[in-house]
Simulated scan of single mutants.
Amino acid sequence: MLDTLLKLLDELFSYKKYRTQNRKDGFTNIYDPIYSDLSNIRADYTAMFRDVLDILNNPKILSSKKLNETTALIQKKRRKNEPIRDKLKAFVWNQNFEGISDEEQEYLKAIKEYFSLTTGDETAPYASVATNYLASIHHLQAIEGFETYENTARRGAWIAEGPIGQFRKFWSHVSEKYLHLKMSIWK
């Protein structure tokens, strides 16, 4: 992990040093792969929460088992892109905005906001939507009690719908900033 971060930081320093001569190469080697990685993460998380909704809304699954199945699903699937997610978060939170264009800054800020969407706090980058969902479900199970699992499952579905809408909204913002950056380079 540290080697990956150091390599990423080394690439960033190289990019800054030669940015006037190699702006297109920098975009191709740094910002475009970031967008691609983030796109994969977003797609996986969106699919994961749609799967959660499918479980919670499935009348064939007993209510008492729905929450356990969704938490198991999230605990399994959220680890798929964890190394990439951690790499991107480390890159964005350790980014020095000096010496880069306004478009680059806006793009990186949009990514930072995307990762902050779970907490609304840019100083807490390592919480995840999945972690927050799991905490909310465990909280609901604790306060609702065993006999109200159906109500808890309905609330769980409501909680799961939120991230899908958030992903869509924040992804739109990231994509807009990505396109502005790309257009500023290839104008």
Rank of each mutant, 00 (worst) to 15 (best):
G165N: 04
P125V: 00
H138G: 06
Q166H: 03
A72S: 11
L140W: 13
T71H: 06
Y107R: 12
G156E: 05
R85E: 12
Q166T: 05
L56G: 12
L53I: 10
G165H: 03
Y126P: 01
I100G: 10
G162C: 08
P125F: 03
A127R: 09
K65I: 13
L67H: 01
K87L: 07
A153D: 09
T131R: 09
N68Q: 09
A90M: 12
E150I: 09
N68L: 08
Q141I: 14
E69D: 12
R155E: 15
Y114K: 04
S64D: 14
K87I: 06
R79W: 05
K66G: 01
T119N: 00
D102M: 06
A157V: 04
K77F: 00
I164P: 06
Q141W: 02
G162Y: 10
A127K: 15
T118H: 06
G120F: 00
T152A: 12
G120W: 00
N57E: 15
Q166F: 07
H138P: 05
L62R: 11
E150M: 03
L53F: 02
W158R: 07
G162M: 11
N151Q: 14
Q105H: 08
I159G: 05
L88Q: 10
V92Q: 09
E161M: 05
A130S: 08
N96F: 07
T152M: 14
E98C: 06
K112N: 10
F115L: 00
A124P: 01
K60M: 07
F91E: 02
F97H: 13
Y133H: 08
F97I: 08
A127P: 01
I100W: 15
T148N: 14
R155S: 11
R85V: 05
P59R: 08
Q166N: 04
T71A: 03
I159E: 13
V52D: 03
A124H: 02
E122G: 14
T119Q: 01
T118V: 14
A142V: 12
D102E: 12
L67I: 13
I159K: 12
N96R: 12
R85P: 00
I61G: 00
E104K: 07
I159F: 08
E113P: 02
G145C: 03
